[in-house]
Design a protein around this nucleic acid. Sequence first.
DNA 1: CAGGATTATTGGATCGTTCCAAATTAGTCA
DNA 2: TGACTAATTTGGAACGATCCAATAATCCTG
Lengths: 366, 366
Amino acid sequence: MTKSRVTVVDIARAAGVSKSTVSLVLQASPLVNEQTRARVNAAIRDLGYVYNRGAANLRQTASSKIVGIVVNDLTNSFFAELAVGMDMVMQSAGFVQFLANTGESLDRQREVIASMREHGISGLIISPARGTDASDFKPLIAAGVPVVIVVRNIAGAKVSSLLSDNYAGARAATEHLIALGHRRIAFLGGFADTAVSADRIDGYRDALAAGGLAADAALVVNSAPSRAGGVAAIERAMLIADRPTAALCFNDAVAFGVCDGLRARSLEPGRDFGVVGFDDVIEAQTAVPALTTVSVDPQGMGRRAAQMLLKQINSGRVEAEAQVASVRLVVRQSCGTVAGPWGGGASHDTIANDTMGTDRRQHDRP
Amino acid sequence: MTKSRVTVVDIARAAGVSKSTVSLVLQASPLVNEQTRARVNAAIRDLGYVYNRGAANLRQTASSKIVGIVVNDLTNSFFAELAVGMDMVMQSAGFVQFLANTGESLDRQREVIASMREHGISGLIISPARGTDASDFKPLIAAGVPVVIVVRNIAGAKVSSLLSDNYAGARAATEHLIALGHRRIAFLGGFADTAVSADRIDGYRDALAAGGLAADAALVVNSAPSRAGGVAAIERAMLIADRPTAALCFNDAVAFGVCDGLRARSLEPGRDFGVVGFDDVIEAQTAVPALTTVSVDPQGMGRRAAQMLLKQINSGRVEAEAQVASVRLVVRQSCGTVAGPWGGGASHDTIANDTMGTDRRQHDRP
DNA sequence: CAGGATTATTGGATCGTTCCAAATTAGTCA
DNA sequence: TGACTAATTTGGAACGATCCAATAATCCTG
């Protein structure tokens, strides 16, 4: 039971130097003599000293080595992987991260951001909850705290952002389904009022138009962006008179739900119905049938967002920068085929795994 | 661009009081006059003051309102949900959490714990990486930082722990499979050198013995505790001469992988082969077939671990307490049936959903 | 060996908050 | 009014590390 903590002064006393010298050793300054350094380090070990960053951060020149990360739903693999990607680069950079889950609650989001600020974060990465307003970031900006918005765009926010190319991905996926011969293609899941959903639906609609197919509003079915939402969405979609034969899903979670719902109706995804996801979550590769999906590489996106933030923190300048991560369609076994003018007609998809990109609009990263 | 941050002194000046009074207002002390309080609060709002916890924490009486959470694999839904559960109660308690992923690396674990200590965490919840030694917690204990170990036990560690009743869960699941008429039951996935795995295998073996079945070492197949590992495990299991007709899987991720692997061989899980998982991850309910599994309620476990930690932090006493969370078998559609002396013989499981528990050894929580 | 240049070391003062003892003001009662 | 509470308010001295300016020790070099 050590009562009071060990401080630089204790170390100084033990090593027979001044606290200033100890401080220099702590910062690995080249100014200090090797023998002195050794003596100090020995004392540090012996006394079990732990550096107190809180004290160091008091001097306003210092940066806290803490960043905040705010996501809406950590139980969604997409965000979990995003967080893991960020964790990787943050850890290697010697930063430690506050992570908070908002569950789409604006109140929680406000609270955690306030709390993080009190703890002196030197940067924030956030996937904003639905309904977040650009003005919510004003105080952060005013305080000079760099912010990177990921995944969901907030119009008018004067901060950096890293979004995936939702339009291109949805368009490529839809074009792929059309090329396979599908004519009735649904868009399942997601909420229409989010920018992400809007972009994906735009891509989907434009692909239909380009393929000479009419857009049927009934084929766009909203639902929660979760597995359960997918089950619900496919159920409603199958009630339509002229049933779809394939669907582009809002995300992989929805796609898995759609597969579940299809099986519940004794339809085999990939054979009887084409299913394409969005995100390329880890399970997409191993699921049966392996999910054709638009690969967003959440972990890579997390890493990239972290790098963007670190760059701003280190440069000391808060310059908003908008990056769009390109996506690629990964063709696996779930897309289905329809016999027809173009269609191959084989009952199982034979296109090689993990082929082929589409799109490389900007900022391509190998 | 506010250059220097706003401090209590600025507030004091603006409100025409002393910094001490401002401090009292910040702590909602009843000592201060209502009008003064209002004036101070107005100044706080006007100047956009943010409380600096780092400074407050300097005084050694204060507690930092920060806890550390260390998990091995956030991409595993089990841990993601665990973290979400912890996040819930920590957020409500006004705490903010460092979250770090170790990916089973002992080095990373050491690093992040050290880093968290430097930032002054007032408690730590950890699901230790494989190979963690009890002595790794010595410094924390010496410093009086409460620690709660979750999920995986570390023999000899003098800290609190919250484990699930792996033995009872595995035993109940195995007994259920036996009752359905299965005679060749495999145990798939997980590494034999972990305590969790060992406990579950013990429960499995004892259930077999109690059911008069011989334990066949070949039926226990190790693999990574992941979806991919499950695919690999079932593949190896199907090579055994006298094939199993059902399997208890190390966790749900493995169970899903097993389902994938079965489908790849054109076997339908639940009908042609019984699959039981462990954890009861969210997807277990919605998957098709819905997964029969031992419900550990990861989110609930996270909440409970957080409560244990908070209790210790608030009481100021670091008293190790070992809790075992009871588990219950949730029977869904994946367990399969075998025609036989007991077996019902129906090709689809007909037992009601989400029934019934087994076991209530201790600390039962409704 | 004086004087200058290096190389090492070191007292404070400082960061933003809390807390204690002491001071100020207001209120009560004889 | 003066003494005596009770209610408010307030200077400083911490807390633990950093950093600047200044000092001390060492090494050259003519």
